[in-house]
Amino acid sequence: MASRSVETEPSTQAEDDYNAMLSTTDVELLKRAWRNEKAAPEILPFQSDLIARVREQIELMEETVEEKSTLGTDPLSVSLYQMDLDRTLFLLRSYLRIRILKIEKYMFHIQKTDELWNRLSKDEKFFTERCSDDLKKHLEESVLSKLPENYQSRERQSIISEEDDMRLDIFKFDLPELKSICNRVPEPRLDTFVLCRSKDYLTGIQLGDGPVDDRSKLFEMEAGVLYFICYKSIKPLVESGKIELL
């Protein structure tokens, strides 16, 4: 690498290998998880193994930095180690914080949906429970207990509103805004549009809710190209890690 002169065309092979090597670091994986979590409307499975590994590396690095600074190593290199550490810490904190924001927003929905509940880490589950207990208590004490009996549900506008929701379904109206007004439990909107990119060529992605055998609705995705697409149709591919969000 050192012998390469500045003028030569970047040797793509070497660079590809180099990038491939970089992409396997846990920091790189954490960055991907962070971007996915940030871009996805719903909460994604907690990356427990990855987070455990990153935490371990951070602790090790903190010890190393500590050691280096007491040993009187070159202050420049100590400060560079510290910067690298700070960047990793930022990623980790930001990842955890986005998840907490989502939990705070959708806690009742997450609690009543097993699939989502199982995506939380132990600490997050504990947080969700405490948070929702506090909010329930607050809502009941401040407002709900003072309302007539029929309107005391935390989850519905009134006892008749569930019927209204069902009637909307019968007419096959897909009006998320209207539903979210009828339903007091906030839910993530899976029909949000997201930016995504696939590493490999993918085919047979189903767009919309049409029948599966409708060929015209199947969509293919080229590798490395950005697409603007409805989250719902690529949800399983995001979960399996085939597609990354941006």
């Binding site: 767009l207 919309g208 969509f219 190209v225 950005l226 603007f228 697409i229």
Partner: peptide
Amino acid sequence: GFTIAVKVISSMFLAVQWFV
């Protein structure tokens, strides 16, 4: 709104985000 996928090549990051 129904075709749902639009091919956006390369780095239109902020601009595309704005559209999203």
